[in-house]
C-alpha cells in the first residue's frame, strides 16, 4: 500500500507542494530494463527541513559516475512523459559543461521549491542527467503550447542559473520525445 503523504512537522516551514526524489540509472547489465523499471522513488517530503534531510543524504550529482539521473517531481507526478500531468507538456533542456551539475541542480531545485518561477501549477519537476561528456539539466512543465509560460520559465532559468550567455537552452515537447523515443 502506498505510504501516507508526508506532512510538515512542528516548527517546520511547509512547501507549496509535496515533492518526491527519484533516481534512475541505466545499468550496464540489464539493458532491456524499461525506463519505468529503472525509476526508483527515494523519498517524499512536505517541508523545507524535510527536503534538507533528504538532500544531505543523497550523493551530489557532480560526484556520480555513469548514466544516472536524479528527478525531483511534485508528489503525484511520475517523471515520465506518459504521466497525465506531463502528456501535454515539455521541458527546457540546458546542456552543462562537466563540473557545473551540482551547483546548477541545487540552484534549480531551490528555485522550484521556493515557487520562484511564478507560473502557478505549471511546473511538474526537474531532472539532472549525468552523462559521460556533458550533464543535462531539465525543467518540465504541463503545457508545452503555452508560450507565455515557457518564456517566463526560460527567463527565470537564465536568472537563477547565471550561466554563460552561449549556454545551449532548448525546449522539447514530450510528444516529440515520445515520437523519437529520445529525451534530448
Amino acid at each position: 500500500p502506498p505510504r501516507p503523504p508526508p506532512k510538515p512537522g512542528p516548527g517546520e516551514n511547509p512547501l507549496q507542494y509535496n515533492y518526491g526524489f527519484w533516481y534512475s540509472r541505466k545499468s550496464q547489465g540489464n539493458k532491456s530494463a524499461s525506463y519505468d523499471q529503472n525509476l526508483k522513488l527515494i523519498g517524499t517530503f512536505a517541508s523545507v527541513e524535510q527536503f534538507w534531510r533528504h538532500y544531505c543524504h543523497i550523493a551530489r550529482p557532480g560526484d556520480l559516475t555513469g548514466h544516472t539521473d536524479y528527478h525531483l517531481f511534485k508528489e503525484g507526478i511520475r517523471p515520465m512523459w506518459e504521466d497525465n500531468a506531463n502528456k501535454n507538456g515539455g521541458k527546457w533542456i540546458i546542456r552543462l559543461k562537466k563540473g557545473l551539475a551540482s551547483r546548477c541542480w541545487e540552484n534549480l531545485i531551490l528555485a522550484m521549491l521556493g515557487e520562484q518561477f511564478m507560473v502557478g501549477e505549471e511546473i511538474c519537476g526537474a531532472v539532472i542527467s549525468i552523462r559521460y561528456s556533458e550533464d543535462i539539466l531539465s525543467l518540465w512543465n504541463r503545457t508545452a503550447s503555452d508560450g507565455v509560460t515557457t518564456s517566463r520559465i526560460r527567463d527565470t532559468l537564465k536568472r537563477i542559473l547565471n550561466l554563460p550567455p552561449n549556454t545551449i537552452m532548448e525546449y522539447k515537447t514530450h510528444g516529440d520525445s515520445l515520437k523519437d523515443n529520445s529525451s534530448f
Partner: peptide, 21 residues
C-alpha cells in the same frame, strides 16, 4: 489561497536548522 514563496537565502539558512538534521 496565497502561495508559499521562499528565497534561496532563506532556504539555505534552514539547512543548518536542528530540524533539518
Amino acid at each position: 489561497g496565497s502561495r508559499i514563496f521562499y528565497e534561496r537565502n532563506f532556504l539555505m539558512q534552514c539547512r543548518s536548522s536542528p530540524l533539518a538534521k
